[in-house]
Nucleic acid binder design. Structure first.
Lengths: 201, 201
DNA sequence: AATATATTTGACTATTCAGTCAATTTCCAT
DNA sequence: ATGGAAATTGACTGAATAGTCAAATATATT
């Protein structure tokens, strides 16, 4: 019932893109509205505040991207290969963004989270959730890898957190240095973190 | 000659503190001036822009903290112990900040750098510089550790970057989760990253 | 065709923002 | 003591900010 509209979806998508490429603080509601071709009144019809939009935009982005991750981390695939595919996926995504925008953008969850963790509790919690969901994929791969004796870690949960730390940190450095090349070490670094036994050459 | 003043130093110190605890975008020139008890006119007498102040403030902070790092990474100390002390130093600093402000603040260079890397080139470069200086300490420790056969890495430079990645990533997670306890894994994680042979218990 | 419901419009606050400036004050060096 | 250099003052600008609102409009359902 009522009047149909794509404004909400458009706002979510534009907001995620702008905030990822720039920052929460430097993207205004007016910018988002202009880019989405939506009036400000409509913005506040759909979202109570800029902060609420950001939370919704990041959740929506996850919703859209989750199937890809499910595929990458499919239990059908050998566990170390899942991680390998994950690393490649991250590299591709960063490369694509960097080519489009002229700079390495890093992890969107980490960027938003670290900018606002001490300022906006709702955003902090959402960033935490999203990062936790990512870690869970890694953890399940590590659990399987351990069961198969492919890996020298004893605690998959702690191991997953370490893997995620090193990935986040490398993405952060790649962003700050604006050097995509750093990501060439992504996969070897991850494998080193978990003490992966040497595999096929 | 002329009129003496502590305003500049005060602005640098206040700016660093506020930006670290909050974010660049959420701290205004007016806030900084108010906290430093300095008029806006004086601010712009000393600094051409907010962005220039941030760069100067971070450089000044490094200048003040460098002696501590020199001490921690003194060649007089066994290389792995240097890293151990470094990890402890990071934990202490984070704990202190967290107690004072009620939330984990993470790495100041990483926070500023990731917020503005794609927005402000001068700030990006300064953040990169500061991170590079940190990595150099780690690299020298790893070089010595390798020479003494304490460590299973072959390339100290690449190893240092991996160490730094994992440290940054863990700090980032601690900030986003607002959980100081995550940092308990800091030292073990670092030692795992470099394949440190088991030492004294 | 009528109506209820949802969306759109765009002008409107009131505040905050970074940055400017000319006049004034302070105090070091001579 | 005084002249010159540097710091201070605080009011000012104009643009940008997040958020508001009442009236207009479109449409899916009945």
């Amino acid at each position: 019932m009522g009047r149909p509209s794509e404004a909400k979806e458009k706002l979510l998508q534009v907001a995620f893109d702008l905030i990822w490429n720039q920052s929460y603080g430097s993207v205004s509601v007016d910018h988002i509205c202009a880019r989405a071709r939506v009036n400000k009144g409509s913005f506040y019809h759909f979202f109570p505040s800029k902060s609420d939009l950001a939370v919704a935009a990041y959740e929506e982005h996850w919703r859209e991207k989750q199937p890809e991750l499910d595929k990458i981390f499919s239990p059908q695939i050998p566990p170390l290969e899942r991680l390998e595919r994950w690393c490649r996926h991250i590299c591709n995504r960063q490369k694509q963004k960097a080519e489009k925008y002229g700079h390495v953008c890093g992890c969107p969850y980490a960027s938003l989270g670290t900018e606002l963790a001490t300022q906006d509790e709702k955003i902090r919690v959402k960033a935490q959730e999203l990062m936790d969901r990512n870690i869970r994929y890694v953890e399940s791969a590590l659990t399987d890898a351990k069961r198969q004796g492919l890996v020298s870690i004893d605690n998959p949960q702690a191991g997953a957190r370490r893997v995620y730390s090193s990935v986040l940190g490398l993405l952060l450095q790649a962003k700050v240095r604006n050097e995509l090349e750093l990501l060439q070490d992504l996969e070897p670094m991850v494998m080193n973190t978990i003490g992966a036994r040497e595999l096929a050459a």
